[in-house]
Design a binder for these strands. Structure first.
Lengths: 263, 263
DNA sequence: GCAAAAGTGTTTAATTTACACCCATGC
DNA sequence: GCATGGGTGTAAATTAAACACTTTTGC
């Protein structure tokens, strides 16, 4: 639309009035066929050193009984005063519906768009373009999750043991892969790791998150050095208390909201 | 959609037949309102040390006379045997239409999705969700460009001098910013810099591309060292010939298609 | 006491950053 | 010859990688 040159504008059945108001009134919104648009959610957490993704089992065709990413339609309208919900809002709504958690109660969720997936045929029913989002849920919240619909059809899967056994519905395999790539790239460019630990955490707990996402073990000594550098940069600060472990109790730290960054 | 649990499925007016074929037949594709979906293109090149973006001036409302990213509708259909074109294909089609260049003649274009933009109200006519792509055009191809429609309404803008003066149409300002962030991040993670130089290039030419995208000058000596490391890694190889300059002729190199990477 | 994990240190290599400098060429 | 930019070298600071070692706790 937007930049469409005359030759590519939707066929118009009436002359365009130069006045914009009138133009909008008589614009043929129905001139082009439209796809359905959905959001699909890659909800991730880390449980006992393992990166997990939340899947739901489909109860209807197509892909009946297969596991799929949770998702749903974006609510839209052509009403000029209310065109419906934002993509981000749709993703948040789905996340809350799907987990029973509310952002109001749990604090801001990490929820970011990955990209759009729209291959023809990805949904046999109709043309569907899906905007994928990825969400990070702190392990502490996991037990509080009350799946929106049928409890028995919602489950956490280790991303490691997935991929081989279960063929996911639609192109969700591809969406999941793209999202994991994105998460791994974000890991050492952003602060997403802190979204997967509790309010306070030990060095090893943060390391476990890095290891789970990258899928490999990291040298504890070297990781500590990176950690100490983050403290120097004011990104992390020591918190009160200690965490009991299998051996010597560990210091706990807190993520210092990016504000205290500079000198 | 896909994972929609019964409560969130579109209202069905008839009972579902357990057989999938029959299910598809009577599926109510029109149950949810649908948005229009477009692709918007951020077409970039580097001309005389400057990062440029190709914009078109709108000839119609809304945003009449404002500059905008080129773009157009994605062609879709619910026909089960042909649901229309892929998002990537739509972006490529628009790119070819908009520039008059054909991938068949010019070799593969760099064209990658950025993400979807779908804020309500971004297009006052109707609810539009736009999938942004960014394309990189080698400077050598720029003179060959024959804008699709009205020549006088297509122009390269320096991204530097933009942003202040011209208010772009729709949310294209935001799309452009997000794309530039993406390009800068890709610069030292991928090989996009090679998409903006000729087949063979000098060290300084490649440096000029890096400088244009990052918006800052780089130390020639240090850049050379990074460059030599790329040669060691087999990413780049010396080509025959020299490039005449204002002083001493420079060696020219070639991008060695990532295959010769390892030992 | 002993295992287990916390925490510390060392060494080597690679990379980044900031410079100074030499040299070949066109004019 | 001399300015221009190609090309080279050096030194300090930071970071990454591999790995040995000490300390503190629970049991």
């Amino acid at each position: 639309m937007k930049s469409a040159k005359p030759s590519r504008e939707p066929p118009k059945r009436t002359r365009i009035d130069p006045d914009e108001g009138a133009f909008l009134e008589q614009y043929r919104a129905e001139a082009y066929a439209r796809p359905s648009v959905t959001v699909d959610l890659v909800i991730l957490t880390v449980l006992d050193h393992d990166l997990k993704v939340l899947l739901v089992q489909r109860s209807e065709h197509p892909f009946k009984n297969r596991w799929a990413l949770p998702g749903g339609f974006v609510r839209v309208s052509d009403d000029r005063n209310d065109q419906g919900e934002d993509l981000d809002a749709a993703a948040l709504r789905e996340l809350e519906e799907e987990t029973g958690l509310s952002q109001a109660a749990c604090g801001k969720f990490f929820l970011e768009q990955v990209r759009a997936f729209g291959k023809p045929g990805r949904d046999p029913r109709m043309r569907v373009i899906s905007v994928a989002y990825y969400a990070l849920v702190r392990p502490g919240l996991v037990p509080l999750i009350r799946p929106g619909g049928d409890v028995s059809h919602t489950r956490w899967f280790s991303v490691g043991e997935l991929g081989d056994k279960h063929g996911l519905a639609f192109d969700h395999e591809e969406i999941l892969k793209a999202t994991l790539d994105r998460a791994r790239a974000d890991l050492d460019r952003t602060s997403i790791a802190f979204e997967l630990v509790a309010e306070t955490f030990t060095i090893q707990e943060l390391r476990a998150v890095h290891e789970a996402i990258r899928g490999e073990t990291l040298d504890p000594g070297n990781f500590r050095k990176k950690f100490l550098r983050m403290i120097e940069d004011g990104l992390i600060e020591l918190a009160r208390g200690k965490r009991a472990t299998a051996s010597k109790p560990a210091h706990v730290y807190r993520f210092a909201r990016g504000d205290a960054a500079s000198v």
